[in-house]
Design a protein around this nucleic acid. Sequence first.
DNA 1: GAGTTTGAAACT
DNA 2: CAGTTTCAAACTC
Length: 689
Amino acid sequence: METTESNNDRQIPPPTSPEPQLVNVNSLPGESISQNGVQQILLNNPTVATSQPMVKSDVVSTQAQHVNTPNEQQIITVSDNALNHAGPVVQAVKRPLSSTGIQQGPVISKVIIRNTNSTQPVPPGLVGTSTATKLTPTLVQTADGKQFLTDGNGRQLVSATGSPLKFVTVSQGTTGQKNVILTTAPTSPIKPIAPLSKVPIAPISPDKKSDTPAQYQRVSNVKRRKIAELIQLNSGNSNQGKIALPSGIVKIVSVPSSSVAATGGGVSGTSVSSTIPVHVQTISPSKQILKPAASTTTIHPIQLSTAGGKMPLMRIVSVTTGTTTATSATKMVTTIAGAKPIAPSLSTVVSGTTAKIAIAPSNSGKITTQPRFIMPANTPTFKIINASGVKPLAGLPPGTTLLAPQGSNILQGLTVIPSNYVTAPQLVTTQQDQMPQLPQENDTNTNGVKAPLKANGVLPDGTAGRPRKPCNCTKSQCLKLYCDCFANGEFCHECNCCNCLNNQEHEEDRKRAIKSCLERNPQAFHPKIGKGAAGQSQRRHNKGCNCKRSGCLKNYCECYEAKIPCSSICKCVGCKNFEESPDRKSLMHLADAAEVRHQQQAAAKDKLSSQIQEFPERPPEFGESGERLPFSFITSEVAEATCDCMMAQAEEAVRLAVSPSIAERMVLEEFGRCLKHVISSASRSKGPS
DNA sequence: GAGTTTGAAACT
DNA sequence: CAGTTTCAAACTC
């Protein structure tokens, strides 16, 4: 998309002061994992005084992720600014992997940073508990200043190789305030369980259940043993290989002064002074758009198209910018009517000076990647604007993390991603960002310049309507009435046009073009189809057509296209588009039939897609009481071992030259035995750890 | 998908 | 206002 590219190309000037540059959230959905295997989450809280107990924003609970590829390490890096400003930093929990790819050593499922210098207790509810929690690594500082990581019970943690966990220092800000970076291991793509092919099994009569000779059954005993070993290895008993589900993260970001940290590409930050309270909430794909009951808040759903397609969806809620005080922002976060309640431990974050950003997991059992603060890079239909709506903060490059100037109330901690990661429904701008209303039938607006209200296909309420056909303009720059988008008072949006200027980035050109059109024809932007003369209920083309060759029975004719008969205003030649015309009747009949067909197909498609959405992506691996369900033991390794057993039986059948039906039975019975093995081994492994 | 036809819009 | 050119959509192959 042209406009996106131009946004992405735009460079942000370097910062004017040596403000602390923060590590940014640099991973795009579905990309970071494959690129560097590390997902980073920014946690910056330099404003907390040393002696103060930590507030919620100082604490991040995270969960180690299952790492299932060889050579991949899990690294948890915590820079604990709040411990003291000297900044002890705990780094690295490196856990080598076994040859099976299953983790050895403890599963770090929670990290708690505590201010051990403080005499005040850590406020309750700082860290959300998780059923997957097996260990609570805690940074402990002794009286002589040494720090080490404990398991929460006073025992020092060491790496799997026995070496103590290392401490590293972290860069410090210029004002004695420090950035805190929390880096968690990626949410590794969970290997899907290899689906077991459905094997049609012929019914076996009770008396013939096991007519395969016993010696055949023992053929694969050795191989089957491997299944049990795999299940034991992968069971909850050893706590290894457990896939920790990510939880929501709550944070407040504040920095001493305005700065924007950008991701790679050498793009530097710039000063940002803006006021945009934003509520970010993860939603599940099939959820309806939430509408606040009595609020001017606009809620915009965003769908992130990712490689894996499993990224939790984020909803960004922007608020009418006229009420962007800290108080209203707080209210905004807490009063979204109908929004899913946020878990208590992850509830609204309040910090004296910053915007309120809350994030809640849509369904902790289903999220497979870490919730992120994400918003699209500027698009023609969505911009980051300041409170007055006057100065758009355009051109933030993808990967930019927005940070707040101290004392301001600002959108922050959101990562800008390329708009091509955001699929329909698109976002719309807030009210101040929208252009004036198009002239209506009796519009007496005299400012002379009318402009579009919305983007092509986006309804005024921000929801996505049926999009207009994308235009294909090549020479008009979409600033002439040839362009349907422009003629209808819309911005081009996902069109195929070249050199398009019909967007917010070319406001001036657009205004000039609109003015020029209105000079030629003051009615230029009035609807072409209006009501008929008094007493007539039918619609009518306001200008009439001028068709010469089409008989007004093709879509070249504007009257016919609008499904209305030509009128006395028309200057057409050889018109057949009148009420009684048999040609028109037959064509309209065909058109109606086609329309019905189209609607039926669309309805069927909608139904199918909604059914697909309702289908669970992946059943939960754990039961309600936290026990591991049997099927979760069927890992790819187990499936492979099962196949080995079946193959061995097949080979044995060939060696013995049995009939095909016996051979088939031998293999299928082997499968049954393997399955029993899985179930029994799993049940033995499900005991408390 | 390329080429043609068509009529509205833009221009002279 | 009429004639011509430009343009993008509709249409055909």
